[in-house]
């Protein structure tokens, strides 16, 4: 799981960490039973304060995505397939929105869009 933070996006750092962890879990990068990086390791790696990571992890625990196991750390809980699907579908919808907006900005017509999508699908 690679987390990349933006200091200028206006989104609080702990929120960004949460979002990316969630995406990694729902997207399958992290499987049930996998360990999240330790609080301190992640804080040092991302160059943020320990509290920031702690908040993000605690929120994920609150959402039921991970559990804090004594002696082991933060473990990914069984993934609710409905939630995972919903998250992935949302990701798909967002991608569609961006594609359409990008096409319009570049004045690319519907036919070309169809063509390119088919190309990509068949790769």
């Amino acid at each position: 799981m690679h987390i990349i933070l933006s200091s200028t996006s206006g989104v609080p750092l702990y929120e960004q960490i949460k979002v990316q962890c969630r995406a990694a879990i729902h997207g399958g990068d992290l499987a049930e039973g996998d360990l999240l990086p330790s609080l301190r390791q992640l804080a040092a790696q991302l160059r943020v304060s320990l509290i920031t990571v702690t908040r993000a992890y605690n929120d994920l625990v609150g959402e039921g995505l991970v559990a804090n196991e004594h002696g082991r750390g933060f473990v990914v809980k069984p993934i609710d397939p409905k939630l995972a699907d919903a998250a992935l579908t949302e990701r798909f919808d967002r991608a569609i929105e961006e594609t359409v907006a990008a096409a319009r900005a570049a004045r690319i017509g519907w036919d070309v869009v169809k063509e390119r999508v088919e190309q990509q699908w068949n790769q």
Partner: peptide
């Protein structure tokens, strides 16, 4: 310096 402190804090 910040990185050194972070390492200490591990």
């Amino acid at each position: 310096l910040a990185d050194i402190i972070r390492e200490f804090m591990l």
